[in-house]
C-alpha cells in the first residue's frame, strides 16, 4: 500500500517547465488540485486497507502470529500469548466438561486476581494506623465513590476463595490426582491453602473494629500456648519465655493487639503473603504442566493391572 510513494511528483510545483515552453505553464491552483487528488486516492486506499487490520504491521507487531482458522494458528494463539501460555495447545477432550474438575482451581486463581485488584484500590483509602484505620473504613463506606461495593467485593471474594480452595482440594483428593507424578504439587497446594487462610486472617484485623480485634485476639492467644515458644505453653516458662519475648510477641509486635499488630497485619496482608502466595502459585501452575497437565479424566485401571512396586 506504500507503493508509488514519492513517484508522483513529476509535475510538482518545483518541477522545471518541460520543452521549449510550448505549453502554457499550468496554474499553481490546478497543480495543487491534481496533487490533492493523488493524496485523496492514497487516503482511500489506506482506509480500504484498514478493513483488514490483521494485515497491518502494527497488528502483526502486537500479536506476532496469524490468527486464522487453521489448527496451527489456534495452537500458536495460545502458546505465543503470555497470559495464555500456561495452557497446553490441546487437552483431553473429557477434561473440558465441568463434572471432572469443577473448575475450582481456575476460579480460585481468578478470585485471587479480583482480590488483588480490589485490594489495591482499597489501599488508596486506608492508613494502617490505630488512629485513622476505623475512620478510613467509615469514609470508604460513606464517601468514597463505589467504596462500599469495593469493600464488599473484597470481603466476599475472600470468603469465596477459602471455600473454593477447600473444594479444589476435595476434588483433587476424590480423583486421586495427588498420586504419582503429582505428589509434590499436592504439597505446594497444601501450602497455598495455609497461605489463603493466613491472607484472610490477617485481613480480618484491618478494619480495626470489634469483630476483627477479638477474632485476632482469640487467634493469637493460641500462639501464647505454643509448646516451648509460648509463655503459657508446655515447657515455655522453662525455656525463659515471657509475654514480652515469646512467639506471640513476635506476631503482634507487642504483648497486646495494638497499633504494631495492626501495622504487622497490614504488611503481611498486603505485601508479604501475596508475594509468597504468588510465588507458590507460579510453582503450582508450572508443576501442573510439567507433571503432564491435569490428571484426567483418565481411563480407569483394573486391580489386575497393578504393577509390582519398584524397590529402591
Amino acid at each position: 500500500m506504500a507503493e508509488g510513494n514519492g513517484t508522483n511528483g513529476t509535475s510538482g510545483p518545483n518541477g522545471t517547465p518541460g520543452g521549449a515552453g510550448s505549453d502554457e505553464p499550468k496554474s499553481k491552483i490546478s497543480v495543487l488540485l491534481e496533487d490533492s487528488k493523488v493524496v485523496k486516492e492514497k487516503a482511500l486506499e489506506e482506509i480500504k486497507a484498514l478493513k483488514q487490520p490483521e494485515k497491518t504491521d502494527l497488528w502483526k507487531s502486537i500479536l506476532r502470529v496469524k490468527h486464522d482458522e487453521t489448527p496451527r494458528s489456534r495452537a500458536l494463539g495460545v502458546l505465543s500469548n503470555v497470559f495464555l501460555h500456561l495452557h497446553p495447545a490441546k487437552i483431553n477432550r473429557d477434561a473440558v466438561a465441568y463434572n471432572y474438575t469443577w473448575g475450582m482451581g481456575g476460579m480460585t486463581f481468578y478470585i485471587y486476581i479480583t482480590l488483588v485488584f480490589t485490594g489495591t484500590l482499597l489501599m488508596f483509602y486506608y492508613h494502617p494506623s490505630k488512629v485513622v484505620a476505623f475512620r478510613d473504613i467509615l469514609y470508604l463506606e460513606h464517601d468514597v465513590p463505589f467504596g462500599k461495593i469495593l469493600r464488599n467485593m473484597h470481603r466476599w471474594g475472600a470468603h469465596m476463595m477459602v471455600i473454593m480452595v477447600e473444594l479444589h482440594m476435595f476434588r483433587v483428593y476424590l480423583t486421586g490426582s495427588y498420586k504419582k507424578p503429582r505428589e509434590f504439587n499436592w504439597v505446594v497446594g497444601v501450602l497455598l491453602l495455609v497461605l489463603t487462610l493466613l491472607l484472610s486472617f490477617t485481613g480480618y484485623l484491618l478494619p480495626d473494629d470489634q469483630l476483627g480485634f477479638w477474632a485476632v485476639t482469640v487467634g493469637t492467644n493460641m500462639a501464647r500456648a505454643t509448646p516451648l515458644l509460648g509463655h503459657d505453653g508446655p515447657f515455655g516458662p522453662q525455656m525463659g519465655m515471657t509475654a514480652f519475648n515469646d512467639v506471640r510477641f513476635g506476631l503482634l509486635g507487642g504483648s497486646i493487639v495494638d497499633s504494631n499488630a495492626l501495622l504487622r497485619a497490614y504488611i503481611w496482608h498486603c505485601i508479604a503473603i501475596p508475594i509468597i502466595a504468588t510465588t507458590f502459585m507460579i510453582v503450582h501452575f508450572w508443576r501442573v504442566r510439567k507433571d503432564g497437565g491435569i490428571s484426567g479424566p483418565a481411563p480407569v485401571m483394573l486391580e489386575s493391572e497393578i504393577k509390582e512396586p519398584r524397590k529402591i
Binding site: T175, G176, S177, Y178, K179, K180, R182, E183, F184, W186, V187, S295, G296, P297, A298, P299, V300, M301, E303, I306, K307, P309
Partner: peptide
Amino acid sequence: PYIDENPLGNGY
C-alpha cells in the same frame, strides 16, 4: 501422597 501406596484411582 507419600503414604498412599494405592496405585488405583489416579485421575478418575
